[in-house]
Design a binder for these strands. Structure first.
Length: 98
DNA sequence: GTGCTGACAAACG
DNA sequence: CCGTTTGCCAGCA
């Protein structure tokens, strides 16, 4: 089991309508200090991935992409389509796994 | 091998 | 609230 596989595994188990932070996701996969690498994985995900990458936000409850970028808009839309309220660019919902 | 980068995070001031 | 500093570590040149 490598890091990537574990992260994918945990990510795929995030329930609909929930969010996780990068750090929480890494910890849950058994890698306490790899929050940054989660971001790297998400960045490398193919456009057509089935994984709920949009459920991953930073510890501030915000989308960790430059505002106005395609990714930002994409993620924000997906989150709202799951019923996750976003106030002032912040996720107004408790994290799953932390 | 070295040095820099980064979809992070916590601790400060 | 904001900006800075520090710790972290897999990729990449």
């Amino acid at each position: 089991m490598n890091f990537d596989h574990m992260i994918y595994s945990v990510l795929s188990q995030i329930p609909f309508g929930h969010t996780v932070s990068y750090g929480a996701l890494a910890r849950s996969a058994g890698f306490p200090n790899h929050s940054r690498h989660v971001g790297r994985l998400l960045k490398n995900l193919p456009k057509d991935t089935q994984l709920p990458w949009h459920r991953v936000v930073n510890s501030q409850g915000k989308i960790s992409l430059p505002q106005g970028s395609d990714g930002y808009t994409e993620q924000r839309q997906r989150l709202q389509s799951e019923g996750i309220p976003i106030i002032n660019d912040k996720i107004n919902k408790p994290y799953f796994l932390g």
